[in-house]
Amino acid sequence: MFSGREALVIGPLLVFNTVYLVQALDMPTPFEAGEPGPAFFPLVLCALIYVSSFGVMFSRRADGDADAGDGGSGDEMPADGKSIRPFLAIGATALFIFMLDTFGYWLSTFIYALTINIIFEYSSGENMRRVGALAVLVSAALTVLGWLFFVKLFDLHLPTGVIWHAG
């Protein structure tokens, strides 16, 4: 039967689907002018989401189903589902996108690489001074490597940072 865990997905999904439905209903009604029109396919998809959501909620299998294996990508459930690291990585990536425009490639990439490095390498019991020193070196090297790769090899333009050009 339906569990609170499934509600974490189904709840927001139904909200999203309803918003999508409202938008689809704002378009011309399908077959009004004799052809399906732009709302037809989205309405079919909306119906499919409602039916499948009920399927997840009331199917006995779905509840214990955590093995969404996806062949090609090794798409299995993370072993440590309660880890805080993924959320730290999301935060670090969001911060990087904010910083890239303002501070430019060099500073923001160095901080981003350093943060991701520490997120992956940190574990209790390790010598943090050694991990930190290595992370700084690796991040600096990656930042330089990235610049050589994007700018020198592929001739792409990277943000230089609006803050350095202000005033």
């Binding site: 991701i116 490095n117 990656l142 333009h157 943000p159």
Partner: peptide, 27 residues
């Protein structure tokens, strides 16, 4: 070193996304 590996992947993925269209929105 997994930290090195994944910080490289993260950097290439995000900067590459920006550089493909010069768009922060894409990121």
């Amino acid at each position: 070193n997994r930290g090195m590996l994944y910080s490289f992947i993260a950097m290439i993925a995000m900067v590459g996304t920006y550089a493909s269209a010069f768009s922060f929105f894409q990121m």
